[in-house]
Design a protein around this nucleic acid. Sequence first.
DNA 1: GGAAATTAATTAAACGTTTGTTTAATTTTG
DNA 2: CAAAATTAAACAAACGTTTAATTAATTTCC
Lengths: 214, 214
Amino acid sequence: MKKQPVILNESGYEKKDQILDVAEELFSQHGFDGVSIRELAKKADINIAMISYYFGSKENLYVAVIERKMVTIREDIGEAFPNGEGLAWDKLTYIIDRYVDKIVGNRKFMNIVFSELGTSQREHIHAFLSKRFADNQLAFKDIIEEGVKKGEFRPVDAQLAIVSIIGPMKLYVSNPMMAMSLLKEDTIEGAYSQKHRDRMKAHLKDMMKRFLAP
Amino acid sequence: MKKQPVILNESGYEKKDQILDVAEELFSQHGFDGVSIRELAKKADINIAMISYYFGSKENLYVAVIERKMVTIREDIGEAFPNGEGLAWDKLTYIIDRYVDKIVGNRKFMNIVFSELGTSQREHIHAFLSKRFADNQLAFKDIIEEGVKKGEFRPVDAQLAIVSIIGPMKLYVSNPMMAMSLLKEDTIEGAYSQKHRDRMKAHLKDMMKRFLAP
DNA sequence: GGAAATTAATTAAACGTTTGTTTAATTTTG
DNA sequence: CAAAATTAAACAAACGTTTAATTAATTTCC
């Protein structure tokens, strides 16, 4: 990690992204320790040394994979809905829809996040992701508690309500084989098609509607 | 893996279990690839060679960890409830209670299972666990569909209903840090205390009751 | 504009560690 | 004394990383 060049030319960006794409896929499938940089380099069709050259180390590459997507996703959800006004229920349905799209649309990446949140290695990454994840949970919590306060929802255990929204989503994306068998699909793409995303959204909203009804 | 001794004496069993206990803990925390047998041997206070001596290989040890618990758990749940007679709802509440106890009570082991189901390395293990897991899902599915047929439940998407039971459970056990923060507990033991297990059971039953009500 | 000089990108090979596993010798046990 | 348990040491293979040399691209200068 001596040279840390600034790459400006177009082809430089392409190769870096090519590495990041393969890395995201492999880390998602086999975890950080399950991926060797030789295997990675082969699959990305680059020389092993290019990883150190571009990213300095395997761990830095891992961080780079996370940071690249994190930027996109942050913009993606943003302060997306009007806070303050409107029914809590409308906010909740809105955030559920966005969340499902976001998580399913970035399944590979999200599996890296989930597995990183499950262990406590690479402490700074864990801390960073925990914080971001906690913020998202807070958004759900605020909406639910607002609805309860307004009398729009019955008094419920908000913490567990969140677990009941995120849990199914996580299970859905983090186990392709199970998703395929449950949804009676032959391919992974089929299991995560727009049809099934919408089915998942509809289900979560239906369930929460009944769960929260006063 | 030349010698495959049959160990009969008491102390032999103790040492083997001592290795298995440490292995279960470490594999649960860091995954198969994240654990080195030197680290494992140190923590179990045994010589590295003892792992080959007892189990033949690291992968065999991994399988042994899984098989040991699998036997216990199979007995644990068994044909535990009266099939055929009674309300579907009673069966469902019964199986939810049993399931939460089983999964939370064997969190470390279940995290190995979950992470193994998420990847597709070690194909025979994956296939084996998939089958067992599918059987469990089938138990839920049968009960729900029975209830629907009898008119006890409204017509629901049984597949997604299962995801909504298992998803929250899995999220609860596979992310201790998140569980601690959500449940406002300072220790891991606190987050998985009987109090919170019961809270989870009550929540799941409450939610399913409202979700399934005709 | 084109050769020369400079910088960036890419490579094959080697680096020192660590990995899982095995050996051969020793201690413990029945 | 024989069998089982345990050990320290060594094994080859794979790991992440670095080196030093080469090719490709860009800039500089006339």
